[in-house]
Design a protein around this nucleic acid. Structure first.
Length: 579
RNA sequence: GCCCUCGUAGCUCAGCUGGAUAGAGCGGCGGUCUUCUAAACCGCAGGUCACAGGUUCGAAUCCUGUCGGGGGUACCA
């Protein structure tokens, strides 16, 4: 069953293409939920722009559209207003009918894409031998949400965790661990400390530094012993990542890890690829690609260096190799990179470089740098600990749960310790993730525990609380599943507003799947929860005398609860039964 | 210098890719619990959408310029 806004847009589109010589897809772009309820439920803003191209009176065009459109089954009335707005009021019956359908639909009226893409999503990408920190939060949280939304929209998602498991720093790590019989399990357990110690040796002892450099060579040459130590370091880090992902509720698994080391063997081929295409230029001893349109300080062409003058391969080479692999072997239709805004130019250069050969990337393959801003502290500077250090992710998650537990305890002191712990996990982690997802990702955002944990405003706890209130109703209701057989009635403006909002979910999912902007889903869920609260105040459910109306309201509650649960799930956030 | 990006209420943010009188939350003032979870809900106050031009029926949104914040600009990633 097609959702009402889509049906409406199709019907108007058909009418417009019959009346005028324009494409039939214009209506979809111009049909909007009304900005103000006195303008009806939806508004079609197409007449004014048609008037321009057709050189006709917009109100007359609007008149023709309303007469030609076959929408009587859906529309109560259509009014032409202002310069040529067509204000559409839906029939209550049509809304009810669609809600009845949604009541028994797991997907809440959202259809799976008719043209599924294979989408590679590159996100999180922490570094081996270092702890994950606040800098990894946004990539991980936003990337995971995007994967969930794309998957729900019907696309085939291929997660890629491009971890930093290769590079010269491994030379000193391996040498240090091998050097003084210190490679026992405990040492390796705290790789961060090992890293610091190794770095100290590297800087202070020239002979150690030299051996470390030799280790890099040995690692490259697949020396068995060196390789074995490296593998232990990587495995140790992987288990740390896994634990953090699990606590964060992120879907990334070991099988999604394909780190820099994976591409190591492919780098010479990559150089050859560009070389044989005549796209490689040697400059200052380095092998360079000069993508069109990029300039350095001196206004000279800016290179993408894929082989350094010392023979090493910098990250541009690895990124190109990964991109090539994803196109050639993962058969991606769309590749998205969750990396902060600072690397915008880098990705533009990488994409331009690969597209500079017309056969390498098909024109309809989408390469997207999904960029995001920085997490700021209260001083509007990058978020740091009080001491000015880097905020470790594990510490942050712990604090989120701890602070959530305090909030829960105040709100509902009767809860058992076990239950409170469980709820605090869902609420704390949810609040943290939601804060990250709910504002436009391209902007920096200010980190504020109090605000993100508030039960008021656009926060995860507010949405979770709306869900909890509905679940509470069902616990007290005679019937546990309100959606069996009941027909939705629109008897109150609050029910109508809620119903109209529910119909908009498919459009929201589509828009997030296209724009990769999770905050649109957050805004939608917040609007939905607010409308639910208004409904909750004005429309008693269990206290309603009319039996069929009560059943109807239970259905509405059930739909809202499932929409909140699904929506939060797409954001990577759990719901709880009480809080 | 050049390029990118952001600038909306005292604070934190939305504003659906150009639509009607720019919306929320916090903070301030006031109201609603014998009734489904009141950390909820309702109302009031609060705006030169950084600034100046331009495009057109119509601009917070698009184009140009200026100012301000952040970032990038050849072998770190």
């Amino acid at each position: 069953m097609t959702d009402i806004p889509t049906t409406l847009a199709d019907r108007f589109g058909r009418a417009i293409s019959l009346l005028f010589d324009v494409g039939d897809n214009v209506a979809g772009a111009f049909l909007r939920p009304s900005t103000n309820e006195k303008f009806g439920d939806y508004q079609l803003n197409v007449a004014m722009s048609l008037a321009k191209s057709l050189n006709q009176n917009p109100r007359q065009i609007a008149e023709q559209i309303t007469q030609a459109a076959d929408v009587d089954d859906l529309c109560e009335k259509m009014e032409i207003a202002g310069p040529g707005f067509i204000n559409v009021t839906l029939k209550a019956d049509a809304i009810s009918q669609q809600l009845d359908h949604i009541a028994s639909d797991d997907r809440l009226g959202v259809r799976s894409s008719e043209h599924p893409d294979t989408v590679v999503v590159d996100y999180s990408s922490p570094n081996v031998a270092k702890q994950m920190h606040v800098g990894h939060l946004r990539s991980t949280v936003i990337g995971d949400c995007i994967c969930r939304v794309l998957n729900f929209a019907g696309h085939k998602v291929n997660r890629q965790n491009h971890i930093g498991d290769w590079g010269t720093q491994f030379g000193m790590l391996i040498e240090y661990l091998d050097g003084a019989e210190q490679a026992d399990a405990q040492q390796i357990g705290d790789l961060e400390a090992v890293y610091r110690e190794a770095k100290k040796h590297f800087d202070a002892a020239p002979d150690f530094a030299e051996r470390a450099r030799l280790r890099v060579v040995a690692l490259q040459a697949n020396d068995l012993e060196t390789r074995e130590i490296w593998q232990r370091i990587v495995d140790q880090s992987k288990s740390h990542f896994k634990a953090t992902y699990s606590r964060l509720g992120v879907l990334l698994a070991d099988t999604d890890i394909r780190g820099e080391s994976f591409y190591n063997d492919r780098l010479p081929q990559l150089v050859e690829l560009f070389g044989s295409a005549g796209l490689l230029v040697e400059s200052h001893g380095a092998q360079c690609i000069f993508p069109e349109g990029f300039y350095d300080r001196d206004d000279k062409p800016l290179p993408l260096i894929i082989r350094k003058s010392d023979g090493g391969f910098p990250y541009a080479a690895t990124d190109l190799a990964a991109l090539w692999f994803r196109i050639q072997e993962l058969h991606a239709d769309r590749i998205v990179y969750l990396v902060d805004t600072r690397q915008k130019q880098h990705f533009e250069m990488v994409f331009t470089a690969l597209r500079s050969h017309p056969q390498w990337v098909k024109a309809d393959v989408r390469l997207e740098h999904v960029m995001f801003g920085t997490v700021l502290g209260p001083d509007r500077k990058p978020f740091k600990t009080r001491e000015g250090g880097i905020v470790k992710l594990d510490k942050l998650l712990e604090e989120a749960e701890h602070r959530a537990a305090e909030v829960i305890d105040k709100k509902n002191p009767q809860l058992s310790v076990e239950e409170r712990t469980e709820i605090a996990h869902a609420v704390g982690i949810g609040a943290l993730k939601y804060a990250d997802l709910s504002s436009d990702r391209i902007k920096d955002y200010v980190f504020d525990w109090q605000r993100m944990l508030a039960l008021n405003g656009n926060t995860a706890p507010y949405l979770q609380n709306a869900y909890v209130r509905i679940r509470s109703i069902f616990r007290k209701a005679a019937s546990q599943d309100g959606h069996v057989g009941a027909v939705v009635q629109i008897s109150h403006p609050a029910e109508r507003a809620l119903g109209i909002k529910i119909l908009q979910l498919p459009a929201v999912i589509e828009s997030v799947a296209d724009s990769l902007e999770p905050h649109r889903l957050c805004t939608y869920l917040y609007d939905l929860a607010s409308l639910f609260h208004q409904f909750y105040e004005k429309c008693p459910v269990l206290g309603c005398n009319d039996e069929s109306l009560q059943a109807s309201r239970l259905v509405l509650c059930d739909i809202v609860a499932r929409t909140l649960k699904r929506g939060l799930n797409l954001l990577g956030i759990e719901v709880v039964e009480r809080m």
